[in-house]
Write a protein that binds this DNA or RNA. Structure first.
Lengths: 241, 241
DNA sequence: CGGCTGATTGACGCGCATCAACACTGGTGG
DNA sequence: CCACCAGTGTTGATGCGCGTCAATCAGCCG
């Protein structure tokens, strides 16, 4: 089931959005933001478990998470699930759709979420009339490319989990970096994403807890020693940001 | 050492280029190609072993391989080399540079190569005046994203090598798919790219040869049984194309 | 209460990295 | 012409990390 998009949904007010600095309007002057806003429509709220799109759905739009969290996933030819990434506020969704106009994964909301949408057919004209938009767009693409490089590293299970936690802590904390984070995804999702077995993720988390680096209470993680956590990731060629 | 770019190098004639269908001009009408060409400059010939750019070099350009082959590589914090990809004719180089205006890897020519270059500052105006250019650009970005997903799979060594060969055969063969290919890169490069040990790549190639799937003569590979090779990759969620 | 799903922990085996020995190649110089 | 060498590729022996399987437990809901 794909969402029916309502073109008359009220416009987003980018200037009031907490993401406006890291999102598309980042490089756009106030004067032009108004024009941008006219073409941004909101989708949502999507409830936890709802799909934003599915593999094979037509993709003729740019989607950006405004709030919440999405899991991208697919199923390979022998039925194994894979997760190319999680998308948090400010992240783009479905860039790969520009390859052939079709979504390549499923996107499911892990928490209640709002999404901003710009029709792909509008993008060329917007790029032409709004200075700074194309760089912002390319920046987002580049970010997406880079985020994929992390996973492809030949990293140990411990490096993967540590880098994952460290990265998520930085991305989830909209406010202060207190070292406390609530994971929106299950252990199994983390494992699939990191290309590890679920049991391995559990083991690593237990070990990190035993060593006093983190404290776990199911999905609530408290990073007790950020410094030692970072030490574990120091050989990770790319962190995600 | 970075290349000094000569802005007066003769323009490329895209319509005469064998790549024109898969490259940027793919979606651009004849009328507009002339305008595109005026902004495309050539770099090269670069000889085998020469660098196109290095990590940290400013990146304010779009680079596309016209002929030859490049290896992207970097060195992580403990001195291990990593190779995020090889770039063949029609591939883009350095998209990640749009993230912060700096190249993130080194790019070294594995064979004598020619490169097309468009200044990044020209891109917004070109996108505005040339219909079809932005989609082509986004298409290239999307391709780059997708190519990274392959490596991040939890694949066996055999799956990796098989998929690598199969993909390369499709990309290297400009003319007919005869199943014969000459690898521009060393075994060790392949190993680093695929996140395997050099010894493992050798072993897999030997095994494939023993099983009659391929024939190897140093860097010349002959795919004897494309069908069985594809069988080995059938569980690879994404091939590179 | 029982059933179900997700997480943890232990036992075991396999795939691949590591280390090392050896073969092969092209380049250089006598 | 061969001797020598460095770089690259191949192959064998060994060990370890992590996947797999399975048992147990905690939390949730009807």
């Amino acid at each position: 089931m794909q969402l029916v998009l309502n073109e008359t949904t009220p416009d987003v007010i980018c200037t009031l959005c907490s993401l406006s600095k890291t999102c598309l309007p980042g490089n756009v002057s106030r004067i032009h933001i108004a024009e941008l806003e006219r073409h941004v429509h909101q989708i949502g709220p999507l409830q936890r478990g709802e799909h934003l799109f599915r593999t094979g759905n037509p993709s003729n739009e740019l989607l950006i998470v405004q709030s919440g969290c999405f899991k991208l996933y697919g199923v390979d030819t022998i039925g194994r699930e894979y997760i190319p990434g999680f998308r948090l506020p400010g992240d783009v969704l479905g860039l790969h759709g520009f390859k052939n106009g079709m979504h390549r994964y499923n996107a499911i909301a892990l928490t209640d979420s709002m999404v901003c949408r710009i029709s792909a057919t509008r993008i060329p004209e917007l790029v032409g009339s709004i200075p700074g938009l194309l760089p912002a767009l390319l920046h987002m693409f580049a970010q997406d490319v880079i985020s994929h490089v992390f996973l492809s590293g030949s990293l140990s299970a411990e490096e993967r989990v540590a880098a994952f936690l460290s990265n998520l802590e930085g991305r989830l904390q909209v406010s202060m970096h207190t070292g406390e984070l609530h994971l929106p995804m299950s252990r199994s999702d983390i494992a699939v994403y990191l290309r590890l077995a679920g049991a391995t993720v559990s083991r690593i988390l237990s070990r990190l807890e035993r060593e006093g680096i983190i404290a776990c209470d199911s999905r609530d993680i408290h990073i007790l020693n950020q410094q030692r956590l970072n030490l574990l990731c120091e050989n990770v060629p790319f962190t995600l940001n």
